[in-house]
Design a protein around this nucleic acid. Structure first.
Length: 651
DNA sequence: TCGTAAGGCGCC
DNA sequence: AAAGGGCGCCTTACGA
């Protein structure tokens, strides 16, 4: 029985319409210069063209023209709207609604074909996605020329309208042909990703201002030590060439690299650092400058949501809450090879410094909405647990299941630790080494790299010889890990000339397309993620496999948490079907229920949730329960989480 | 004036 | 044969 029989065609009941908006932009006013929210709220915002292509309850439908000319908005009622980059088109849609150009329409649900494309290991852009998935060569050069023109040239331009309609048609074709290969849970997560980002994060403006002042001072002070800088905005404080000149004049050598982890530069600093502060000053400038830019980005994007919107929240009565500033962020669904989310849109929420740096703390600038708290929950050592599960290391897993500290479990199963007392108390140094081994050696890391890894993860200073010994010992005591690398490496290389697939425990597939051996003897393949061809080998592919599995665990839990916070009873796993449950049709949040709280953002294996203070303890327990649950498809793998209640983002 | 590559640095 | 990886953003340098 073909599985497609289980999947009723939904076009009979739900209108499916691909929409595409074209907006005017210029040199200064563009999405490159502005974030999406500012772009659609800018005085120059002008949506001059809308194209619609799809299937309504009465049959095929297409339309293109100025949105204010459209008279059939009733067709959008209860529709599934698809767009290539729905984050943008849905934002334009909402803006046109608030401008009165589009009426209020009930039960709309958005889906993004760009997100669908990357899930399917195809490129994100419409042009390249159509080429790979539909075999259609799209020529956008003419179109792009037309797009740059002003509205007077464009209005009534038949060619322009044809291009716009073609984009909507291609988007519809992509959706129609492939949506059944994109699980509904993933579809919902993709939509939620940009909805969460558009809602944004409340900001402590006062702390933000103080931090900017402090950083400007630090940066100014650093630059005073660089003789080639007079004007901080005109000159080049980070010029390696200028540094080389200064060193030559002083009659001293110039370090080849200024990287913090470069041993040669460390030696230079040791020898000349106290007399010549240039390298130190350049490093301080680089770090304070980057940090300052991030604070400025936040400040430039702050917006104050309408007071009306806040009245829906239980905490609306709190004084001053109507003028709370929020920061909209972007997160890229499936931005990384293993399917993890990645940062986007000029500010990466996934790499904020931990703790204080130059007297400021970026994380603490992000706070819950007044009257609420953050619950910050993360999975404990998810990747080593999954690696152990994949190779069936029951000795190790039994220890972890019994509640033994994970690094102690590693020491007991492979480093000969037999004392009945906790390792932490008996031999902290051994625990540090166990930690470095667990986190650093699972994916083929060599001796040279392990010296740095040991310092990073375990705070250890070990010699190259010791590192070599440790790497050898790890591999001999963890033969199953070693075998996994070898097996994957062998299978991958055997795929030369074709594609290589790794099936994940969740059922998802990692795809490496066009495996080939290059002239230097390295094996490469395309993942179509960022379009980069990468050098690949067993250890790396093993890491992809582990990271992807961890991502699937987290993604499922993230959706379960979201549904719980929305008051939806069911768990994340649903039978695969495009049709939505009745009440789950408005966006991703049922509008008939009172939400408990909301997901604010997430970072790989960590989720930040906002809830009214009174519900904090209860919600924390529930989130811990969700995040400690092993998915059915990973049965036997011990999953653990921790969660804190905070009044700002931190860790 | 643009895009791109490379070095550097922040996180998981 | 051996090889930790995954990201995004900043600056500088360089070439079209």
């Amino acid at each position: 029985m073909p599985t497609s029989n289980l999947k009723p065609k939904t076009s009979n009941c739900t209108p499916i319409l691909a929409v595409d908006f074209e907006t005017c932009y210029g040199r200064e006013y563009s999405l490159k210069k502005l974030d999406a929210w500012s772009y659609v709220h800018h005085p120059k915002f002008d949506c001059y063209l809308m194209s619609v292509y799809g299937e309504t309850s009465t049959g095929p439908f297409e339309w293109v023209g100025h949105p204010k000319e459209f008279r059939q908005w009733h067709l959008f009622e209860g529709a599934l709207l698809v767009a290539h980059n729905a984050a943008f088109d849905s934002l334009v849609f909402k803006r046109l609604q608030s401008l009165g150009i589009i009426p209020e329409i009930g039960n709309i649900i958005w889906r993004c074909t760009a997100s669908m494309s990357v899930y399917l290991s195809a490129p994100r852009s419409l042009k390249k996605a159509c080429k790979q998935l539909l075999g259609i060569a799209v020529d956008k050069t003419q179109r792009d020329k037309a797009m740059g023109q002003s509205i007077t040239n464009l209005f009534g331009d038949d060619a322009m309208e044809a291009y716009a309609l073609e984009d909507a048609r291609l988007c519809y074709l992509l959706w129609d042909r492939y949506n059944h290969l994109w699980p509904t849970e993933e579809q919902e997560l993709a939509t939620l990703t940009y909805e969460w980002g558009q809602h944004g994060i409340t900001v402590d403006s006062q702390r933000l201002e103080q931090s900017i002042q402090a950083l400007e001072l630090h940066r100014f002070n650093a630059v005073q030590h660089l003789p080639w800088v007079e004007d901080i905005d005109e000159d080049t404080p980070l010029s390696h060439r200028k540094l080389a000149e200064a060193c030559r004049e002083a009659g001293i050598p110039c370090p080849a690299s200024l990287a913090m982890d470069d041993p040669e530069c460390a030696a230079w600093e040791e020898k000349y650092g106290s007399d010549y502060v240039w390298v130190d000053a350049m490093r301080i400038f680089r770090r304070t400058n980057m940090l300052l830019k991030r604070f400025n980005t936040v400040r430039s994007r702050l917006f104050t949501p309408l007071a009306l919107e806040n009245t829906q929240r239980s905490s609306a009565s709190i004084s001053g809450s109507d003028s709370v500033a929020r920061f909209p962020y972007g997160l890229k669904y499936f931005g990384a090879v293993p399917g993890r989310w990645s940062g986007d849109a000029g500010f990466n929420v996934q790499n904020m410094p931990r703790g204080e740096l130059f007297d400021v703390d970026l994380r603490r600038c992000f706070i819950p909405f007044p009257g609420n708290v953050f619950i910050i929950a993360d999975l404990c050592q998810i990747e080593p647990r999954i690696l152990a599960w994949l190779i069936g290391d029951e000795t190790f897993l039994d220890l972890v299941r019994s509640g033994v500290d994970i690094y102690e479990a590693h020491a007991r199963s492979t480093m000969g630790y037999t004392d009945l007392r906790p390792l932490k108390e008996v031999d902290p140094a051994m625990r540090s080494l166990a930690k470095a081994r667990t986190l650093g050696l699972g994916y083929g890391c060599g001796s040279k790299k392990f010296v740095a890894v040991a310092k990073n993860f375990g705070g250890l200073d070990i010699s190259f010889a010791e590192a070599k010994q440790t790497v050898q010992d790890f591999r001999s005591k963890n033969l199953k890990i070693y075998s996994l690398w070898k097996r994957i490496d062998r299978d991958f290389k055997r795929s030369t000339g074709g594609d290589y697939y790794i099936e994940l425990p969740s059922g998802r597939e990692l795809r490496y397309l066009s495996v080939c051996k290059n002239t230097r003897g390295y094996y490469t393949a395309s993942t179509e993620m960022g379009g980069r061809k990468r050098k690949l080998y067993g250890g790396l592919l093993t890491e992809n496999l582990v990271q992807a599995t961890a991502r699937d665990v987290f993604a499922e839990q993230l959706l379960t948490i979201h549904r719980y916070l929305c008051g939806v009873p069911q768990a994340a796993r649903l039978p695969c079907s495009v049709a939505s449950p009745n009440n789950n049709h408005q966006s991703s949040t049922p509008n008939c229920m009172q939400p408990i709280g909301r997901v604010v953002f997430h970072v790989h294996d960590e989720v930040i949730v906002e809830v009214p203070e009174s519900k904090a303890a209860q919600v924390r327990e529930k989130i811990l329960a969700i995040m400690s649950t092993t998915p059915d498809w990973l049965s036997g793998c011990p999953i653990e989480a921790e969660a804190t209640i905070n009044h700002h983002y931190t860790k």
